[in-house]
Design a protein around this nucleic acid. Structure first.
Length: 262
DNA sequence: AATCTGCTCAACCGCACATAC
DNA sequence: GGTATGTGCGGTTGAGCAGAT
């Protein structure tokens, strides 16, 4: 079946928003305590835009909690780290960077970070080293990349296992939400091996109840936060270092970097 | 000064999913 | 259960700008 267009495009304006239009949209949302139905908003507010365009303008630009300006080095590191775990799930990545939008992060990745990784000889999708014959190799050159590769392995294994389990016992589709996704991985044997890992310092567990994985109900945020907090030495200085460094044999992991027995 | 080239980022498009009817 | 509608997401585009030639 065909899908009806999101709005009747006749007479509707496209392209850049004017300050006047911005003001109308902001005023309307403020006055009504929210946007309500995006579809009906333009008509009610007196805008010659489709609802989708209004929603995009609001979420990516006009929202009061938007943090404008260049990304900090910390934010860039976090984006790279999260991309290694999540892939192109921009909205999920954005949820971990307050004030940043998925669009902004997507742009950052496509214009800066992707090139930076490629310049270092890393595949921007897998975060693994690219050889001359355009294949990727295992044994990533740095703790962070190793960490990402380990998580990707864990993710795939968990996905396969949970897929089998869910087809037997659980009607809920795997990966229906990112919350389920991380919670399931965390509650799996993969997550267990992470939790039992000796190199995971006690202080990291403060604030997380790990006495039982079953107690992590509705704790996808906690699970994800634990992944983000994982002791990867926070050393991403390699991002700024010369590519030549990575043409040498893989660096040894530092003392407190993470190796998980998968 | 004019043109070219590359970069950035706001905005659009189409698809997928959730929900209402 | 099937269809229509609303919304969110990721990929892509193109206008505007800056620096190079």
């Amino acid at each position: 079946m065909g899908r009806a267009p999101c709005c009747d495009k006749k007479g509707l304006k496209k392209g850049p928003w004017t300050p006047e239009e911005d003001q109308i949209l902001v005023d309307f949302i403020k006055k009504n305590g929210g946007h309500g139905s995006w579809r009906s908003l333009p008509k009610l507010a007196g805008l010659l835009r489709c609802g989708k365009s209004c929603r995009l303008r609001w979420t990516n630009y006009l929202r009061p909690d938007i943090k404008r300006g260049p990304f900090t080095q910390e934010e860039e590191k976090l984006v790279i780290q999260l991309h290694g775990i999540l892939g192109n799930r921009w909205a999920t990545i954005a949820s971990q960077l307050p004030g940043r939008t998925d669009n902004e992060i997507k742009n950052l990745w496509n214009t800066h970070l992707k090139k930076r990784l490629m310049g270092m000889g890393l595949d921007p999708q897998t975060h693994e080293l690219i050889t001359s014959c355009s294949t990727t190799v295992k044994a990533p050159a740095s703790p962070i990349t190793r960490h990402m590769a380990q998580w990707e392995s864990a993710r795939l294994e968990a996905e396969a296992r949970l897929s089998r389990e869910s087809s037997l016992f659980n009607p809920i589709p795997l990966g229906k939400t990112d919350s389920d996704y991380f919670l399931r991985i965390w509650n799996s044997k993969i997550g267990e091996s992470f939790r039992n890992c000796k190199s995971y310092p006690e202080e990291m567990m403060v604030g997380y109840d790990t006495s039982s994985s079953d107690e992590l109900e509705d704790s996808s945020d906690s699970a994800l936060q634990m992944l983000l907090d994982f002791p990867i030495n926070n050393d991403m200085s390699f991002l700024e270092e010369d590519i030549n460094k990575y043409s040498t044999p893989p660096a040894m992991l530092t003392e407190n970097s993470f190796i998980c027995p998968l």
